[in-house]
């Protein structure tokens, strides 16, 4: 299928995927250097999901994400400096260094985390949507979660509330096939996620999460449905994470051959190849975009390195509203 976008927008999508990829590759390196600590969950391989999806949303929409949310935060408009500084634990970070990799937040872009309880964001998203509905706001709340969350009670309770009250919430499941190390078929009696969500009477759609065009088009359709006041929508993006679950994962649960097979469908090289074939990207342009992404990453690392540590005297700040 031809990429149905003008050159500028197509390159913008590619560039955002590159920014996530280069930022996270650097994060892995910095983790090795112990500049970044705690848990670090990389999104590498899944970039088409966040980029395709978030570019289908409006500035006034709400975003609720998981602990694998660096990409979502970045594409949403949180600066790479603020994300990197957060991972360094600096007060210049987007959560003032109190959250870290798993808890990126940003009021200005309506980015509501950064939730590290699997399924924890879903009831919250229903609540945002309820507030919007009661206040007559035509806003979409997009809630991202993995397929692992669909085993949680929170998924069922939230789907039921959203369907029962016809709330403007877009449930976006990034199905990367593994809940940490547990394959979908080893944890779910019903592996057809759309069937599961559809049992609440919510319209559903599956899309190839490795294909940014498929993601973007599906998300546009889903967002329109929700924005038009037609109630909740469930979108499944079928994707794959190329890296380990976190930096502590020896990956005993999947074959290397399976990973390699999925890598052939990697969203970056497949999309750039398509753009080149369609004359929407030259190798020089690609290299320039990549260099720009790398420069942004390096600048963010310099920013995070140079940022001061918050004084320990501030420890009890922000537990309560002053």
């Amino acid at each position: 299928m031809t990429v149905p976008y003008a050159k500028d927008f197509a390159q913008k999508l590619l560039f955002d995927m590159l920014r996530i990829r280069r930022m996270e590759e650097k994060c892995a390196e910095l983790y090795g250097e112990q500049k970044i600590r705690g848990f670090l969950h990389l999104y590498i391989g899944e970039e088409a999901c966040a980029v395709g999806a978030l570019h289908a949303l409006a500035a006034e929409d709400n975003i609720v994400a998981t602990y694998r949310e660096h990409g979502h935060a970045l594409v949403r408009g949180v600066s790479m400096n603020a994300i990197m500084a957060e991972m360094f634990g600096k007060s210049a970070g987007c959560s003032s260094g109190r959250g870290g990799s798993m808890h990126l937040f940003d009021a200005a872009t309506r980015f509501f985390g950064g939730n590290a309880i699997v399924g924890g964001g879903l009831p919250l998203a229903a609540g945002f949507a309820l507030a919007d509905k009661l206040q007559g706001k035509q806003r979409v709340t997009a809630c991202f979660f993995g397929e692992g969350a669909m085993a949680e009670g929170a998924f069922h309770e939230s789907m039921n509330l959203a369907a029962l009250w016809q709330l403007p919430v877009l449930f976006c499941c990034e199905n990367n096939l593994y809940a940490m190390g547990t394959a979908l078929a080893r944890s779910e009696a019903q592996t057809d996620l759309c069937a599961k969500a559809g049992s609440y009477g919510v319209p559903t759609l599956k899309a190839d999460g490795m294909d940014i065009v498929a993601v973007h088009e599906a998300m546009k359709l889903a967002a329109r449905h929700v924005r038009d006041g037609l109630g909740p929508f469930f979108l499944e993006l079928q994707t794959y994470r190329f890296r380990a679950h976190s930096m502590f994962d020896p990956e005993l649960y999947r074959d290397k051959a399976e990973v390699e097979e999925w890598k052939t469908r990697g969203p970056l090289h497949t999309f750039s190849a398509r753009l080149k074939a369609e004359g929407k990207l030259t190798e020089e342009e690609f290299l320039a975009l990549d260099a720009q992404a790398n420069a942004e990453v390096q600048a963010s690392v310099d920013f995070a390195e140079a940022a001061p540590w918050e004084p320990v005297e501030d420890l009890l700040k922000d537990v309560h509203t002053p």
Partner: peptide, 17 residues
Amino acid sequence: SELGFVGAGIGAALGGL
């Protein structure tokens, strides 16, 4: 759905109610 509606209450509070 205590988990669901308490969580929805949190979301609604964040959403301006």
